[in-house]
């Protein structure tokens, strides 16, 4: 049953899933930090704080969209939420 072909297929699955899951998540978080630092003049600690908090509470579509479309183009409710989180993180990180 477990010929080397099956093992190789399983290995491909494992590699694909692990790498896809981790790189997608990691890359998007990195994009937030980069976006906040380069496009919003945010101190690095505050940018990391916002990315961490957004990660813990925002839906994936918002996490993906925000750095891509920019803050100005987000719907008003999301702008308000991100602005509050942003100010809170500026205070938290000094």
């Amino acid at each position: 049953m477990t010929s080397h072909r099956l093992r190789l297929a399983g290995l491909a699955v494992a590699i694909t899933l692990v790498l896809t899951g981790s790189t997608t998540s990691f890359a998007t978080r990195v994009r937030w930090v980069t976006w906040l630092e380069r496009e919003a003049g945010t101190p690095p600690e505050a940018a990391a704080c916002v990315a961490d908090r957004a990660w813990a509470s925002f839906p994936p579509e918002v996490l993906e969209a925000a750095p891509r479309v920019g803050f100005s183009a987000l719907p008003g409710g999301w702008r308000e939420r991100i602005a509050s989180m942003y100010v809170a993180c500026l205070v938290a990180t000094g």
Binding site: R38, E39, A40, G41, G70, S72, G76, V91
Partner: peptide, 15 residues
């Protein structure tokens, strides 16, 4: 929308 619609490319703004 809000603001100018492009990124801010000035110096890092502290608290």
């Amino acid at each position: 929308a809000a603001g100018v619609g492009t990124g801010y490319h000035g110096p890092t703004a502290t608290l």
